[in-house]
Design a binder for these strands. Structure first.
Lengths: 173, 173
DNA sequence: TAATATTTTCAAAACTTTTTGAAAGTAAAA
DNA sequence: TTTTACTTTCAAAAAGTTTTGAAAATATTA
């Protein structure tokens, strides 16, 4: 066995998992889902459902559902070990890939629908009242900025981390 | 009065407000708050609490609380009209400013706390077990990418829309 | 085949967030 | 000062979300 200050590592892990859970909540990812993701990111080896349940003190149903949601999002993967019946789970650890995956999902869930509404609404007969004029102006502006963002996300999702970090560094420096 | 296809404008408005509400939800902004913001963005003139209540079919308490939250976020402003007792409310309509404000708030609420935890945790004695090593590696990576993002958000928040759109266009083209 | 191990499902319970509405508070007008 | 107009507060209700746990389904081994 390894001699480590177990208490400190456990504490640090616990704090990080908690905070990742809080962060997840404000990003529309539920607490358990974010915590499972954090736990798996920190783990050097893949883990079983029972280990996740035990470490996070959550029920089997909860663990199972959220693990599948993470797989759906492309953030967690299944692994089968030879001679073992249990399924093992491990996380995407490269934060760049994590962010790309999240951006992709959110683009599908958020940007696409609002752009659809904006397109639909731009076809409507709105008349020349101040209300109609303002509506056209505001929605047109919104569409223009959203479309630029959308293009950017799309581009970033196709690029690699290095390209992106270089761009950021150049801008920020 | 203006002759307009009232039904169409009302429908279009309704759809946009609904969708903005949905969008808000996945951004940690509650539905009523996002809808009030959408309504005020579309309005050519500032509106009273009663008008907002009436148009969105929400209670006085709800309207009041969320309007104050929007003021806190710097997305809505109060206005007093001479000779009138009522308070009037109007929204920031420039989406660039809206996004800047939201980024600022979220930075305070999300990026700062996670960076604090990462800093705290980086001081801990983690030992040399695979667990300890992995923990160090993952948290260091996360901190590095978050710090770059943080710098970028900070820079963007200090810049104007033109600068930002130019950068985006240059990248995307 | 039956027995055992493991995963999945889902209705009900627990928990969280949002909304309501009426009462309390505040400010302006009479 | 009293009345009236308006805003704010907050406890309770409603709505929404997450979690549990046991039963059903599935897969593996004997």
């Amino acid at each position: 066995m390894y001699k480590t200050k177990t208490v400190d590592l456990q504490e640090a892990k616990y704090k990080f998992i908690q905070e990742w859970g809080v962060l997840g909540s404000s990003w529309g990812i539920n607490r358990a889902m974010a915590q499972i993701h954090a736990l798996l990111m920190l783990a050097p080896e893949s883990k079983t459902t029972d280990e996740v349940m035990e470490e996070l003190k959550i029920s089997r149903g909860n663990a199972n559902m959220n693990m599948r949601a993470l797989i759906d999002w492309g953030l967690v993967f299944k692994e089968y070990k030879p001679g073992e019946r249990k399924e093992y789970f491990y996380a995407e650890k490269d934060l760049w890939n994590v962010m790309k995956q999240i951006a992709k999902e959110r683009r599908k869930r958020e940007i696409v629908p609002i752009r659809d509404v904006l397109a639909e609404v731009s076809e409507a007969e709105l008349g020349n009242s101040p209300e109609g004029k303002e509506f056209k102006k505001v929605t047109k502006d919104i569409d223009s900025i959203i479309s630029k963002f959308d293009g950017f996300i799309d581009l970033a999702a196709k690029s690699d981390q290095n390209w992106f970090l270089k761009v950021l560094s150049k801008l920020v420096k």
